[in-house]
Design a protein around this nucleic acid. Structure first.
Lengths: 203, 203
DNA sequence: AATATTTTTAAACAACTGTTTAAAAGTGAT
DNA sequence: ATCACTTTTAAACAGTTGTTTAAAAATATT
């Protein structure tokens, strides 16, 4: 009864389920999502979710693999790349990250929340600490200003970039800012943040 | 059958449930929490949860009222207070906020996530935008540096302070930093952030 | 066309979840 | 001690949830 997938039997419905899962899991999180929500969103029969993905857990795990990579995989290469100067790193990383987050504003809240709820499940297992310490990003910071702790600095840049997207539901509700206004604010930050970050570095 | 609470009948169990609810909801969120979890954590019979709080919804709402106030009510008064200079505001707010977050590291992730999942439920309804615009915090920023958008500035300070606590599950997992090490990093930030923020203001 | 294989469907299952019930136990007033 | 009332308990209820089943439909193979 399990689908034998020697080739690609019917990519269409399998992908429909995957897309629906991405959407519903992003909106409601793991615990808040019912397999029936996914089936409905995909416009397919409930049993097909289990037919193609075995279980809600497995499907969620596959979605999260993507999401975690999307959140961390897009900036890390830029910061690690020794070909970029420190300032170039900051400019490109900020621009890239904000562009990605404008397209996926729910991504950080989803990933941070689900990693908290399922620790050890989505961690890239690898020892990232030594990699970080030896990265060109860290060495370039130390060269530029040895009073600055590179890790604190990294946390700060990420906070400047990512936090507004996490707080977005509150920002919209409390300061009643429309979706477009929010996007405009974030685009402004593509120039603001590198500017401020450089000032922080030279202090 | 509903508890008549002319006086305080038995504050003990009612408070036991409340404390358990705070803990379990904070750990697992609304959708991930079962009323049986709360009863077990409180060490009381399952039916007592409904006896004292009517429903899971009502109990959750009461917990969230507290949590939202804890997250926003602690800093807002400082930033609004016209008696404090801009620099004093920043120093005290940072210190106060980080101290509170060290004691309640799960608070921001819980509140932002649940507000996203239940919009309009916990919003303070009031029009905060005009209040913000006329606050002494905003006017002081404009006086000090009229090139800086006060709202972008506020978002940035909050990001610097709050983001590490939201990313904590990832920081602990990826960079394998212990709970104590994390707390030490956050305490360092009580001096780092006001310093950096002032530099940003004078740029 | 006949057969085998894969995909889809409606229905059902068993476990779980929030809530209620009715009786028992506890508490305080008279 | 009796009575009225509150609190606690074990059990049950009704609806939900992830998953499975067996048959039907669709597709591919010969």
């Amino acid at each position: 009864m399990t689908p034998k997938r020697k080739e690609k039997p019917d990519k269409s419905t399998e992908e429909k389920i995957m897309e629906a899962a991405r959407k519903v899991f992003s909106n409601k999180g793991y615990a808040g999502t019912r397999t029936r929500d996914i089936a409905e969103e995909a416009g397919i029969n409930l049993a097909l979710v289990n037919y193609y993905y075995r279980s809600k857990d497995k499907l969620f795990y596959e979605v999260m693999q993507e999401k975690v990579y999307q959140l961390f995989g897009s900036v890390a290469p830029i910061l690690i790349n020794p070909a970029f100067s420190l300032e170039t790193k900051i400019e490109i990383a900020t621009e890239t990250y904000i562009d990605m987050l404008v397209d996926n504003p729910d991504l950080p809240l989803l990933v941070f929340n689900e990693i908290k709820n399922h620790p050890n499940d989505f961690g890239a297992k690898m020892q990232l600490k030594p990699m970080l310490l030896q990265s060109s990003f860290f060495t370039q910071i130390r060269e530029r200003n040895n009073k600055v702790d590179p890790f604190q600095f990294l946390l700060s840049i990420l906070g400047l970039i990512v936090f507004p997207f996490i707080a977005r539901p509150v920002i919209s509700g409390v300061a009643d800012i429309s979706k477009n206004e929010f996007t405009e604010l974030m685009k402004e930050r593509k120039k603001l943040i590198p500017y401020w970050v450089k000032v922080m570095l030279d202090s």
